[in-house]
Amino acid sequence: EVTIKANLIFANGSTQTAEFKGTFEKATSEAYAYADTLKKDNGEYTVDVADKGYTLNIKFAG
């Protein structure tokens, strides 16, 4: 089991951190699915992958 950390960075400057656990593939998939649910209210997003994929910096356009 691994932990994927998602740093969520919103257009208004606020930030939030979420963690997803499971296999690497499952946790990564859940992180992207979570970002997709936030897209409606926060706009499109870009992802900067860090720490060999264990950290995702997800920035929303607003």
Rank of each mutant, 00 (worst) to 15 (best):
residue 1 E to Q: 08
residue 1 E to M: 07
residue 1 E to S: 07
residue 3 T to S: 11
residue 3 T to M: 12
residue 3 T to L: 11
residue 4 I to P: 00
residue 4 I to L: 08
residue 4 I to H: 00
residue 4 I to N: 00
residue 5 K to S: 09
residue 5 K to G: 04
residue 5 K to H: 13
residue 6 A to L: 11
residue 8 L to K: 00
residue 8 L to D: 00
residue 10 F to V: 03
residue 10 F to I: 04
residue 10 F to C: 03
residue 11 A to R: 12
residue 11 A to D: 10
residue 12 N to F: 08
residue 12 N to Y: 07
residue 13 G to W: 09
residue 13 G to T: 07
residue 13 G to C: 06
residue 15 T to D: 08
residue 15 T to G: 07
residue 16 Q to N: 09
residue 16 Q to S: 10
residue 19 E to N: 14
residue 20 F to T: 01
residue 21 K to P: 04
residue 21 K to S: 14
residue 23 T to D: 08
residue 23 T to G: 06
residue 23 T to N: 12
residue 24 F to T: 05
residue 25 E to Y: 07
residue 25 E to F: 07
residue 25 E to I: 06
residue 26 K to S: 15
residue 27 A to C: 04
residue 27 A to V: 04
residue 27 A to L: 01
residue 28 T to R: 10
residue 29 S to V: 10
residue 29 S to G: 13
residue 30 E to Y: 11
residue 30 E to F: 11
residue 31 A to I: 14
residue 31 A to L: 08
residue 32 Y to C: 03
residue 32 Y to P: 00
residue 33 A to C: 04
residue 33 A to M: 13
residue 33 A to I: 11
residue 34 Y to Q: 03
residue 36 D to M: 07
residue 36 D to V: 05
residue 37 T to W: 11
residue 37 T to S: 08
residue 37 T to Y: 09
residue 38 L to G: 02
residue 38 L to T: 02
residue 39 K to Y: 06
residue 39 K to M: 10
residue 40 K to P: 11
residue 41 D to E: 10
residue 41 D to R: 13
residue 41 D to M: 13
residue 41 D to L: 14
residue 42 N to Y: 14
residue 42 N to I: 06
residue 43 G to S: 03
residue 43 G to V: 02
residue 43 G to P: 01
residue 43 G to N: 03
residue 43 G to Q: 03
residue 44 E to M: 13
residue 45 Y to A: 02
residue 45 Y to S: 01
residue 45 Y to R: 01
residue 46 T to W: 06
residue 46 T to A: 09
residue 47 V to L: 05
residue 47 V to T: 09
residue 48 D to E: 15
residue 49 V to R: 07
residue 50 A to V: 09
residue 50 A to N: 08
residue 51 D to N: 10
residue 52 K to Q: 13
residue 53 G to Y: 03
residue 54 Y to Q: 06
residue 54 Y to E: 04
residue 57 N to V: 11
residue 58 I to W: 02
residue 59 K to A: 08
residue 59 K to F: 11
residue 59 K to W: 08
residue 60 F to L: 01
residue 60 F to V: 01
residue 60 F to T: 00
residue 62 G to F: 10
residue 62 G to N: 12
